[in-house]
Write a protein that binds this DNA or RNA. Sequence first.
DNA 1: CTGAAAGCGCTTACAG
DNA 2: CTGAAAGCGCTTACAG
Lengths: 337, 337
Amino acid sequence: MKRRPTIMDVAARAGVSKSTVSLVLQGSKQVRAETRDLVRQAMAELGYVYNRAAATLRGSSVGLVGLVINDLRNPFFTEFATTLQMALAAEGYATVISNSDEDPALQAKLVASMIEHGVNAVVISPAYGDGPATFDQLARAGIPVLQVLRQIDDRLDLFPFSSFDYATGSAEAARHLIAQGARRIAFVGGLEGRAITLERMSGYLAELDRAGLPALQVQGRATRAFGIEMADHLLADHPDCDAAICFNDLVALGLMAGFARAGRQPGRDFRLVGFDDIEECAQVWPQLSSVSCDIADFARETAETLLTWMKEGRVPAPERRAPVHLVARASSLGETE
Amino acid sequence: MKRRPTIMDVAARAGVSKSTVSLVLQGSKQVRAETRDLVRQAMAELGYVYNRAAATLRGSSVGLVGLVINDLRNPFFTEFATTLQMALAAEGYATVISNSDEDPALQAKLVASMIEHGVNAVVISPAYGDGPATFDQLARAGIPVLQVLRQIDDRLDLFPFSSFDYATGSAEAARHLIAQGARRIAFVGGLEGRAITLERMSGYLAELDRAGLPALQVQGRATRAFGIEMADHLLADHPDCDAAICFNDLVALGLMAGFARAGRQPGRDFRLVGFDDIEECAQVWPQLSSVSCDIADFARETAETLLTWMKEGRVPAPERRAPVHLVARASSLGETE
DNA sequence: CTGAAAGCGCTTACAG
DNA sequence: CTGAAAGCGCTTACAG
């Protein structure tokens, strides 16, 4: 664990001044190719490691983007995080991924730590219930911050928001189920009163209203476990229920498991649509219909928006909605095979 | 985006010297409580943000741990990453999570970036096929490095390895299936020739040999998609196959989906055991038996081992194997409710 | 194209 | 308990 070599050591070895070494590090073209190679070789020989802390201190950018996710275990968010990280890596930015686990206090700490580390920007899918602790810190830091997938803070000029056009998606799902002959369609999952639940439900409510059908809302956590529970609930208390749109795919997959246990099969006895279209939808049987939110694409667009903001100072529009579309599969079509 | 206040500004405002401010920052108890509060208040008023780059440069630890995961989309690894991050956060360390996506070149870049950022330690579940590019960098950096779940580099003195006792797990699974009456047991998934595949298979091979039963190996990627494919393959080419141990739960879940499509149900027509015991095993129907590798626990132990190494300089044993145990559920027990 | 010098914001002995 | 001073390893004008 001896002292790491510095640019001074490299300079001495290569027989140049430390400025020259620094210029080589910056990839400056004012340095002659031979000199550059000489310096590079000296670095290799010494096992030189660039000290970013020193560079940062002197004023250069850290090349770091912070990503804060409310639930990294959910495959939808995992896909977002990994795709975003790869897109930013392609442009030379390192991404620090972190999981707030729906805990606003932990989230505030994570953000504080990121700011101390000098991240150049933050992308956050926030936990609920924080109050302003997290966002006030971000505002003070004066760096680009993108609010994605959940809008918690109203200052959209400071924290532009982007998400999917969920309302249109659930309307499409509802029309599809009605067209398939469903008459008693439930909406299952999503915590009460939250903006995202309201959005994902709004298209459903509007379409049922238009068709003169009664709505049936069963709200709760967005997990497989909740879906499993609700299968029993629907079977026992709403035997006439013949279809469901779920808040997300995890709930729908749970519902499927619960139904299977009771001997009912989506597609044959029941029509089911999820939300997000995670990879697993096409990998279960029967395959699960879902409102596709192309999260990888969304992550790439988020990366692009952020890079433009960071590098050219162009602030994004306060709100953006990515299109969604229904992917109808066996679970809602009634053809099992 | 004006200049951030520094400890000099805080010192001026609080009417003390900058050393005093620094001592407050360190939580030193040589500063009088009143002085400390004065300084704290000045910080709050100015919106002071600690500049870690400066502190790091001067020699203090960054308080950063790098985590490199070969496939962050796999829920087994996601669980590991999030649990480790939370365990380290509890001790004041920030964790940067990154996904190498099984790409050794990307992995080498991620590690380089982490080292430049001055991480205090690295935990890595490595991608295959790197050669020494990644580990040589880590060796030069001279920081604690833990190799987990996959052993790629042989220098266990430099990169202590910890994983699960897979061999015992698959032996237990095989004995269980034999006891349940299975006579033609396949091992499905896991890429050929890889250490982890061999380990997970070894107990199975030994037990089948002991019982005088023939082995049936079907190797391939550790994904749901592969499991789905292999369901058709087993049904068509090995109709006598009455049970399977899968390389991991994803393969087993894929196999279940493939069997369901063909009208066969694990537990009734077929006995199935997965590996890892991810949360989903208890949330599908029929519930999936699995060799439980308590990954959250493993993550917490990893955090502890690493903290001891970082803080007390105690190098861990070159190899550690966490115990595993079979969780028998409906998919191998033959009781479908 | 290259060298000498200042300074980024902290921490750390060292005096007082 | 507090203050003055040096220095961490870079980058950035500025001369040459």
